[in-house]
């Protein structure tokens, strides 16, 4: 058997292995996505969906400030959540990877992600009770005499951010930890040999080498956060709407699928831009 024939056989085998995943993606992502994109160019008139190509839904999005504000709110909350989650997750992952003895690391990691095991909805409602006027935090602060009046935390953007950060810190801890434990201790030894102190070693060696883990986690956080409907709905008190809430609003009573599809495409574009930025940045760092 010649080398070419072997290569062809390998290639066929590779396609064979990849085919189920490709077909799955085609059937359940590409085709529905194309259908959604087409629907976003249709229009709802009265009770009918009119299948005439037009940009009305997109024009409406950019002309109505309440809709546009939904995207702005989504982006603001997502950026705040992503940054805070990274800042909190990194030290946690570092402590688990570097300070916890090897035999306890798995247990520490399980404890760190334990809240993942509870229902997302239940967790959000639990936060609502914790953050409410008569909740644990306010009772503790007033009990200690630190505040006279309860803080207004529930039903605010702060509550939404707290709910999100609690969830995403767990996710980021996993991605950063997996990156940290792969780092050879020789990098730090080499840096120390060259006279770098602990901070310089971290800043110039460890941090750049763990950026892929940070960026992977940050991108996942961005994607999951910007598309989330549950947390802002429960914890935000509808004091501002994010884009997924506006999408849901189009569907409930009016069943305005073309408008909901257009808003979803806009949301996907935001995620795509985030991906392009992350991918480019990571590439530069690796180079």
């Amino acid at each position: 058997m010649t080398a070419t024939t072997l290569e062809d056989a390998d290639r066929r085998k590779a396609w064979g292995f990849a085919a189920p995943a490709l077909l799955w993606t085609l059937a359940f992502f590409v085709v529905p996505f194309l259908f959604m994109a087409a629907m976003s160019l249709w229009k709802r008139e009265g009770r009918e969906i009119v299948r005439v190509w037009n940009l009305d839904n997109y024009l409406r999005f950019f002309s109505e400030s309440a809709l546009l504000q939904g995207l702005v709110n989504s982006l603001e909350i997502t950026v705040i959540v992503t940054v805070l989650s990274v800042l909190l997750a990194y030290p946690l992952a570092w402590i688990i990877a570097e300070r916890v003895p090897k035999r306890f690391q798995r247990m520490a990691l399980i404890l760190a992600i334990l809240p993942f095991w509870t229902s997302y909805v239940v967790r959000s409602y639990s936060w609502l009770l914790v953050l409410s006027k008569n909740g644990v935090i306010n009772q503790m602060l007033t009990g200690l005499g630190l505040i006279a009046e309860p803080l207004e935390i529930a039903s605010t953007r702060t509550a939404t951010v707290i709910g999100f950060v609690h969830f995403f810190v767990m996710l980021l801890t996993l991605t950063i930890y997996s990156n940290l434990i792969q780092l050879s201790p020789n990098y730090r030894r080499a840096a120390a040999d060259l006279g770098a102190n602990a901070f310089q070693t971290f800043w110039h060696v460890v941090l750049p080498l763990t950026l892929p883990g940070i960026m992977t986690g940050a991108f996942l956080t961005f994607v999951l956060c910007i598309g989330d409907y549950v947390t802002p709905q429960i914890l935000g008190g509808n004091n501002e709407l994010v884009l997924p809430q506006i999408i849901m609003l189009q569907l409930g009573r009016r069943a305005d699928f073309p408008m909901a599809a257009a808003l979803s495409i806009i949301l996907m574009l935001a995620v795509t831009v985030a991906y392009v930025l992350c991918a480019r940045w990571l590439k530069i760092e690796r180079a």
Binding site: E64, S65, A66, L67, Q69, G70, N238, N239, E240, L241, I246, L249, R253, R254
Partner: peptide, 9 residues
């Protein structure tokens, strides 16, 4: 619905 959305924002 638009008035309601506007109010929420």
């Amino acid at each position: 619905q638009d008035a309601w959305t506007e109010m929420l924002q």
